[in-house]
Write a protein that binds this DNA or RNA. Structure first.
Length: 651
RNA sequence: GCUGGCGUAGCUCAGUCCGGUAGAGCAGCUGAUUUGUAAUCAGCCGGUCGGGGGUUCGAAUCCCUUCGCCAGCUCCA
């Protein structure tokens, strides 16, 4: 009999007959490993445990400890879901059902949308199928036979998938659960060996989706679920979701009185007094960061004649997202959806020399975008918002250093908030303007800058804007959704459209390159993410109310007011709670409002000229002189210390 | 925009399936209490049940329509 050599991760190797499966290899190592095995990696390629080994290979048994295991496990759970749905809903047609970062989903074409009761029934069916420990088997089918089989079952979408994904192949990979009659899916795998492995899963929600994500295609019903190796992990995940909901910015914003909305202005924020204080603190922070970095601040019009938008190209490509207005003499106007065209006009308003570059225009005025109603979400997706926007006008050989400076700016700002983020480089898309050589130079400059700034990143090939490559930064919200915040975008087109020129050292006219960039992204979205990041317990420098003075009884009110006056004179945002309530009640309210410092003032403090300091996290800190407290608090503000603001993940 | 769900007092929610005078807690107001580190007690006020239309003797409840919110899809900061 022919033998092959199997090399294990520890470097050891063994001879086994050709056709041996990784499952057998695992069993040969130890029964416990065989029991824990989910799948196998053969020469770093994930396969089933039943995959016959035909030649010498490195084999690693994938168990629940392996990083890839959960993905396989969830994908197998998605198959179980599809098996349950096709069993309970005869005629249901399957689309695709992948594992995701948090779980899995599967899309179906069904006669009617799923309702919550359906999910319960489907989940019960899944548990039943899991309890039967049905084998998952990979089979190679003749391609035409497979197409006929799926066509015969009314699975037109599967036939389409086979057509598209296996062109020119003689055989296609299919997975059965138990047998052909019970469930079959066209799928590359790998999968767990049997349904009994699937121990802990839960269906979470349903929603509409379209075949291939295109609204022009057939509407489908999607079922989301999640799965873990143990019930304990599943329960932990579910309670994490529950905890995250508690710090959802929409809830916290309401509880803390930061902002509100009204149905007469969908997608537009009413910033309440406390929210406005927070907003202004961030706006001023950004100015403090940008002015020393060579930026100047502009305020440009909110409404422009359509001529501007025609010149910029937005009239042709972006009009449906713009709020349009008719002027009193019938002229067409558009509210600005971005600042760039206005900034181009400012650049062009006077002669510019190469000595002026880089020239950096910063602007915080509001933008309006007529977003589709279905996409509006709290503060993270709105119709009226302000960016910490800027446009940097540079020569082509200044691109690298400018982008590097921008990367360091992003790192510095996000560092000030202890935010975690991910950077993505998006490169030349299929449809683009300009020369390939220019794009290549620009992409190389961005990569170089990323490396110099020590910024890790992933590449999104072909995802750049039509006018230039870009680097985007994502921050994750409380419930795991990623939101783009900072962005750095090169633009070779807009300076040409506006015919921008500067006079070079050679006394000739040249066209500058524009870098569109934002660090917060928008104030609205950034504040939403900050609220969730801090669970509403902002660091002292951001807290809308920084200190509250709590007199014990009415006779301490005068003293409390003198303390308040000193706090306010020193520039702190403070208030006094003079209500006729017990101190425990006042403290509870201040804690719920997440006020960083509570200063208790009673007989003792009034006599000594002190305050009894309570920190919202550390609790009672004992009594301090007012000056002593002030000095300490002002230092905390100045340092933008997060000392008393644990981030949500630590709460 | 699409699909589904939801909309009852300032807030959180019950009542809707099966039509019969709209409920609770918190908040607010008034009074008492003068209080020492996460809720003092009592009383009172408060809702054309998102808007409009329809069915019915009678609609929060059933039907239609419209607006908003939520989830997802698509799209974006």
């Amino acid at each position: 009999m022919n033998e092959i050599t199997v090399t294990l991760p520890d470097g050891s190797s063994r001879r086994v007959p050709t056709g041996t499966t990784p499952g057998t290899v695992a069993a040969g190592i130890s029964p416990r490993l065989a029991k824990a095995a989910i799948a196998a990696a053969v020469d770093d390629h994930l396969v089933d445990l039943s995959w016959p080994l035909e030649r010498d290979a490195r084999v690693r048994v994938v168990t629940s400890d392996s990083p890839e295991a959960l993905h396989v496990y969830r994908h197998s759970t998605a198959h179980l879901l599809a098996a349950a749905v096709t069993s309970l809903f005869p005629g249901a047609q399957c689309g695709i059902g992948p594992a995701t970062e948090e779980g899995f989903f599967y899309d179906f074409v069904v006669d009617r949308p799923f309702v919550p009761e359906d999910l319960d029934a489907i989940e019960r069916k899944m548990k039943e199928l899991a309890a039967q420990d049905l084998p998952y088997e990979r089979q190679l089918w003749n391609r035409d036979e497979a197409k006929q089989f799926f066509a015969g079952r009314g699975e037109a979408l599967k036939v389409q998938l086979i057509d598209e994904k296996t062109e020119g192949q003689a055989e296609v990979s299919c997975y059965t659960i138990k047998d052909r009659e019970t469930f079959v899916d066209f799928c590359l795998g790998p999968h767990v060996p049997s349904s009994g492995r699937l121990k802990a899963f839960k269906l979470l929600s349903t929603s509409n989706a379209y075949w291939k994500g295109d609204a022009k295609n057939q509407p489908m019903q999607r079922i989301y679920g999640t799965a873990f190796f143990s019930d304990k992990e599943l329960q932990a995940h579910l309670s994490r979701i529950e905890e995250a909901r508690k710090r959802d910015h929409r809830k916290v914003g309401k509880d803390l009185g930061l902002f509100t909305f009204h149905h007469w202005a969908p997608g537009a924020t009413f910033w309440l007094d406390k929210g406005t204080t927070l907003y202004n603190a961030l706006a001023n922070y950004m100015r403090e960061v940008l002015f020393p970095a060579g930026y100047v601040e502009l305020k440009t019009p909110l409404v422009f004649n359509k001529g501007l938008w025609e010149t910029s190209g937005h009239w042709q490509h972006y009009r449906e997202n713009m709020f349009l207005i008719e002027g009193r003499d019938g002229e067409e106007m558009g509210m600005k959806a971005m600042n760039c065209p206005g900034h181009m006009l400012v650049f062009a308003s006077q002669m510019r020399s190469y000595k002026d570059l880089p020239l950096r225009f910063h602007e915080q005025t509001p933008l309006h975008r007529n977003e589709a109603s279905g996409v509006l979400t709290g503060l993270t997706r709105v119709r009226q918002f302000s960016q910490d926007d800027a446009h940097c006008f540079v020569t082509e050989d200044q691109i690298g250093s400018e982008v590097e400076a921008l990367l360091r700016l992003v790192q510095r700002v996000y560092g000030d908030f202890n935010l975690e983020y991910e950077a993505k480089l998006s490169t030349r898309p299929a449809e683009f303007l300009g020369e390939v050589a220019t794009w290549d130079r620009a992409e190389a400059a961005l990569k170089q800058a990323l490396q110099t700034a020590g910024q890790t990143y992933t590449v999104n090939d072909g995802d750049g804007a039509f006018y230039g490559p870009k680097i985007d930064f994502d921050i994750t919200d409380a419930i795991g959704r990623k939101w783009q915040c900072a962005t750095i975008q090169l633009d070779y087109q807009i300076p040409q459209r506006f015919d921008l020129k500067y006079v070079g050292a050679d006394n000739a006219e040249h066209t500058p390159v524009v870098i569109h960039r934002a660090i917060f992204g928008s104030f609205e979205r950034f504040i939403a993410l900050l609220i969730e990041h801090y669970a509403g317990a902002f660091p002292l420098w951001l807290a809308p109310v920084q200190v509250t003075v709590l007199p014990i009884a009415d006779r301490h009110a005068d003293y409390a007011r003198t303390v308040l006056a000193r706090l306010e004179a020193a520039g702190l945002r403070a208030e006094v709670d003079e209500r006729q309530e017990k101190i425990g009640f006042k403290i509870r309210e201040a804690q719920l409002q997440k006020i960083p410092y509570m200063l208790v003032a009673g007989d003792r403090e009034a006599a000594e000229g002190t305050v009894s300091v309570r920190n919202r996290v550390l609790g009672d800190l004992g009594s301090q002189g007012v000056s002593e407290f002030l000095e300490q608090a002002l230092r905390e503000v100045r340092d933008r210390s997060a000392a008393s603001a644990p981030v949500a993940s630590e709460v």
